[in-house]
Design a protein around this nucleic acid. Sequence first.
DNA 1: AATGAATGAGCATTCATTCAT
DNA 2: AATGAATGAATGCTCATTCAT
Lengths: 216, 216, 216, 216
Amino acid sequence: MSSLNNLAIKMKRAISEIEKEQRKEQIVFAALDEFYLKGLKATKMEDIAIRCGISKGTLYLYFSSKKALFESAVEHIAMHKAQQIQSLMTNHNSVKEALDQLFEFIPNVIIDSPLPKLIKVLISDAFDFPDVIKTYKQNIIDQVLSTITIVLQAGKERGEVNIDDAALTAKLIVAPVIFAVVWKVLSEAENSPPLAVDVLLKQHQLIIYKALGITE
Amino acid sequence: MSSLNNLAIKMKRAISEIEKEQRKEQIVFAALDEFYLKGLKATKMEDIAIRCGISKGTLYLYFSSKKALFESAVEHIAMHKAQQIQSLMTNHNSVKEALDQLFEFIPNVIIDSPLPKLIKVLISDAFDFPDVIKTYKQNIIDQVLSTITIVLQAGKERGEVNIDDAALTAKLIVAPVIFAVVWKVLSEAENSPPLAVDVLLKQHQLIIYKALGITE
Amino acid sequence: MSSLNNLAIKMKRAISEIEKEQRKEQIVFAALDEFYLKGLKATKMEDIAIRCGISKGTLYLYFSSKKALFESAVEHIAMHKAQQIQSLMTNHNSVKEALDQLFEFIPNVIIDSPLPKLIKVLISDAFDFPDVIKTYKQNIIDQVLSTITIVLQAGKERGEVNIDDAALTAKLIVAPVIFAVVWKVLSEAENSPPLAVDVLLKQHQLIIYKALGITE
Amino acid sequence: MSSLNNLAIKMKRAISEIEKEQRKEQIVFAALDEFYLKGLKATKMEDIAIRCGISKGTLYLYFSSKKALFESAVEHIAMHKAQQIQSLMTNHNSVKEALDQLFEFIPNVIIDSPLPKLIKVLISDAFDFPDVIKTYKQNIIDQVLSTITIVLQAGKERGEVNIDDAALTAKLIVAPVIFAVVWKVLSEAENSPPLAVDVLLKQHQLIIYKALGITE
DNA sequence: AATGAATGAGCATTCATTCAT
DNA sequence: AATGAATGAATGCTCATTCAT
């Protein structure tokens, strides 16, 4: 038995604060992957540990409980994204410029970032974590929507775009992103080829621009 | 064997069969509610039983396991919806007529039917049930999308609508439905006022019609 | 594996309220034995279950947690004893008669009843359960002491006994009982021959009677 | 080997040894406090470490395991007391003189020394440590009791005291000490005012003297 | 058919102990 | 020597499932 233990690869110790932060982040991403695949309840702490190459006990040096880890993971990833998104649509001269930026940015978010996973996790465990949902919705969703709304409203007042209701239009601009995220989850689940997100969004951009009267 | 039995017994059994089906349906809806709120793993068989006013043991007379109940519930509700949706967009003379019908129908689905719950459940436990997802996607989503696609394609060929890619456009027409469903879940979770789905879809209809060059 | 299960002796089901009460009492006594031997923290729920011939899960049908079982066990046994002790020293004509009754009763309590175990358990886990201790002390110890005190005080006023302080004397009358209990624990632990409790208490009786001026 | 080293280093080591012993003693007392409050199983090594202001790891430089620490603690404190008690009742001219000394000594032991804590600890974890109990009982309890027994027996033979059985009487003389210790634990646990040990023992002394026919 | 008592595999969490730093 | 990060065996408790009544 001891010889088996000797074969085990022992994790390097995280001594400095920086190393500890890195370890925490590593756990948080491993946790997100598990939560994404299994949901909160069905995720085993041991599986998260294995994914990190650490032991169950070590997890508890960094997070006091599964719930705490879940909340940390959501917050960590959500807040990280929130910053990116916030800075996205400032400094533009016209609605078109702003939306161009947005439409260029979105595919990367869907394809490369952990945001789709986070969204799936939040949808799945929404009812167990109303507070997390509330915070997330206020800090991310509402923020993004109101930014877009403001841009549209200003454009409408300047006669740049032809719209009815800026707030609703903002939601409709964002809707295909949610659609793409959900599609992504379902495709991955049934192991079918993924949606061509960029092409879909290109088409979406066209439709929106046409409807809003924006010309290239 | 049934022909050997007398009529009275047959009828009794026939009634029994009906009652059995009713009981099964009752369980299936109770289960959907629980799965919607808690997810598959966190849902207790006992809670479903309580919701039906029956005992744990009785549940197992109708469904052999939680997984079987889950699959039955999803299938039962999904197939029920599928029929409705299938009959939706036939018998129309123009794209506009077909889409009018669709846009009239959708809000009811989101507000009154169990479909949003089902979608939430499917998203949440997608990875545990790739087969369920596959079946559901093929029988419902792909069906709906291809119906819309065909309508659009035909309209395009007749010069009724001005579109690029009928299949993508179909997805974009459906996207806000998913958005509305997700929003509904998040609102219910954080106990915030719901989205005015009908108004959103009215606006969506406007944008789509404008982009497609459909005039009232 | 299933053949092994078939060999397992299944516990008869406790259906009626009476059977359930009996099962509860059975658990309580098994628990007392374990708590006595190991202390609260070191006692495994599984060991209690094994002692009863039931499964771990069944324990939780009757008691919601180890702590609850502990408290129930203490209360159940303590209250049972309290009643006996209460009725002990009423209806007597003289101090001598009352003390005679007491000294006749005590050895049985030490030798045959679960009280010594209970006392050991209470001492051991006193700091974790201040409330249990408080209740127990008020309902049993203080009760007993005050009953003896009243008897002595009345005897003193009638000139029957020659004492200084009735309350302190009461404590000193009881002291060897505690001594015997502690001795019993230590003897059992080191597996040495037990103290002859009855002889010790006979001697104690003599000393007390001599000191109090009670003549046979 | 030590003779090979120079004086300075030797002295340094000598000091180290003393410091080591002091550290050990410090740990032992911290451990006793924890064991007294929580019991062996529920005491965390870390809490002992914190109480000493050292780290968990350092504890293991001095004691190889919790069990070893427990045994060391009990032994260290018990043996220390044993010496005091041994020297207590020698050099006396009469039973009265010997008992006077005893009764003067006891209250200090109960109030100021770690002995009550030790007794509580020994009672609590008796069954896990039969050997410790055996050693302790032989070296302390039996020693004390036999010393008192010898004194009483000699007094009886000299006609100083009027007793039946010297060994039993010795136990009865000691009984209130155990009573006081147990009472102390229960009072501390329920946070109620402590027993006036000295007054109780004064009364006890009176009763014993009266019963034994010892006059002031 | 219906019930709910009984079961035990499964998992979150704790903490004595080890050992790299 | 001292530290405290890492480990994993141990254990309280849950709940899907079974089955006697």
